[in-house]
Design a protein around this nucleic acid. Structure first.
Lengths: 219, 219
DNA sequence: TAGATTGTTAATCGATTAACAATC
DNA sequence: TAGATTGTTAATCGATTAACAATC
């Protein structure tokens, strides 16, 4: 069915479309034009049509797109009909926050375990999942297949932990440590570097104030 | 000095270069070639040279780039010599985690305040910053100019809070709520949608398993 | 000097936008 | 029918890669 692979840019937009279509459904809106959707999401209508065309646009000329159908289609594309298992390694404040994040479970990402090295954290229950010692990971992973490992460990051990779980069969890593992970080709890696986001914000803030200054000087 | 505006793709890579160069400095490595740096970061040497060329590449033919100088240069480009003030709105687990994130302060992002609506959270101190009622925001912002507001509030009030702080003079928003914020042009918005990252991971996992299946069928 | 590696232009690739016939 | 809006191709734009003379 989904013959052609979608470009990475389109894939990145899929969750946004999905979220937006969910909102529309909740509002009871069952049809939308590419122009409307684009306007609301800050995209051109051309891009919306082109994107939907990639996975078999199901619009109706002169009418627009069926919100429910589109929603379903993207649901399938994203593989949300299947659930994924996930473990969190590093039960610090960020690990806690992610473990408590309600939306993950709703979208089929099931938290199977939380791990840490600190003895004082072991045994604590977060959302019914107990924090276990990192040393138990090999044993745990041999019994429970896990798709995604979330790395919320300190910078200096991220690489080591990543290699460990990759060797133990975890297929994908979601890395929050501000380091470049060097992983074998077949391991899927997604980085969320918070500090990078802030720095880009900082750059844009600086750009903006420089622009404003030069406007003042040469009016 | 920095005459031409950098393309957004280059800006996004700057923090990564910066981080990588920091590591090299710590290792006592003071010179690197575009080939080497590219290899380690998963970029082509061509791209590295092209990127550095944008902001006045300072390499030496036959020799490579001076790590220290490059590091300094990107530091300046990112505006890290200036510090930025930041408030966090929403003192839930994610707000907590971000407030405790040590790297932010190190890079010049100073936490000036934390706000929430829940009475039981008011008064709690996180890293020496007290949680204040959201109702005090107008008063607080009139006395303390703030560059960045971090939104870690529930989905249903993100839009409202965003408009409020934008009206009160905050220049940039770092939004963690899974909603599209409609903001005036001059407000800088950076979105970090955790669930989107997971969904992209999920898509890639599905792609991978489909590829592997079809390999098994037709060998 | 010979080898290495940059600076910089040109070529290629990919993504976005424009255009418009098809058709609901 | 007339108006709206898609599907789809072509044009444009931007980003990445290739190439190579310059030069350390």
């Amino acid at each position: 069915m989904d013959e052609k692979k979608l470009s990475s840019q389109v894939v990145k937009r899929l969750p946004r479309y999905y979220r937006y279509l969910s909102t529309l459904l909740q509002l009871g809106i069952s049809r939308i034009s590419s122009k409307d959707l684009g306007n609301r999401m800050g995209l051109t209508s051309s891009q919306v049509r082109q994107d939907f065309f990639c996975f078999g646009g199901n619009g109706l000329q002169g009418y627009g797109y069926d919100v429910g159908f589109l929603h379903q289609e993207i649901h399938k594309l994203l593989g949300l009909q299947h659930s994924h298992t996930m473990i969190i390694i590093g039960a610090g404040s960020l690990g806690h926050a992610l473990a408590k994040h309600a939306n993950f479970e709703k979208s089929g990402f099931k938290l199977a375990g939380i791990f840490d090295v600190k003895p004082e954290l072991i045994g604590e229950k977060i959302r019914n999942v107990e924090v276990q010692p990192v040393d138990d990971l090999p044993d745990f992973l041999s019994k429970n297949p896990v798709d995604i490992a979330v790395l919320t460990v300190p910078e200096n051990c991220a690489g080591e932990v990543a290699r460990l779980v990759a060797d133990l069969g975890v297929k994908a890593l979601w890395n929050f440590s501000p380091v470049e992970l060097m992983m074998p080709e077949d391991i899927i890696v997604e980085n969320t570097h918070m500090i990078d986001c802030l720095m880009v914000l900082g750059y844009n803030l600086q750009e903006k104030s420089l622009r404003e200054e030069s406007l003042k000087e040469k009016p």
